[in-house]
Amino acid sequence: MQITANMIQRGAKAGLETTWELAKVVVPTAVVVALFKASGLLESITALFAPYLSWFGLSGDAAVVLFSGYFINLYAAAGSIMALTLSWQEITICAVMLTFCHSLLVELPISKKAGSPLSYIFFIRLGCSLAVGWLLGVVLS
């Protein structure tokens, strides 16, 4: 095994350049997430979509789990699950739906930075989430 100063230098340079590229996405996104949390938008969206959750075998309450996961992150979704009383079927359906599609405010810009169009990553992730959620809803309930 061989470690040269040149390797360390090149690696550090590549690492710093990459961190800078990601910083240009991560910092603005963090501001957007903070605004989103403070704006009350999450509550409005949750109320708007709650009636449609029966399509996935979920009660209206579960909307807050899905949307906090979709927009913010999986820890926010897990927190919502713990705050509610959901059946294990509902927890499983939410969990599996969220594995495909989560932290969108943060992850979509990162995907874009890595060379994939934003809208198409969004539709693929949401599409997978809704399709599998519907299927699980049919199977489990």
């Binding site: 690696g11 590549a14 690492g15 961190t19 910083a23 910092v27």
Partner: peptide
Amino acid sequence: QGVRGVITIGLIVVPLMIVLEI
């Protein structure tokens, strides 16, 4: 929050790139 995130990313990405070079 964002700056903290970037520091965390840097602390992982820089060593990762060095390991990758090696």
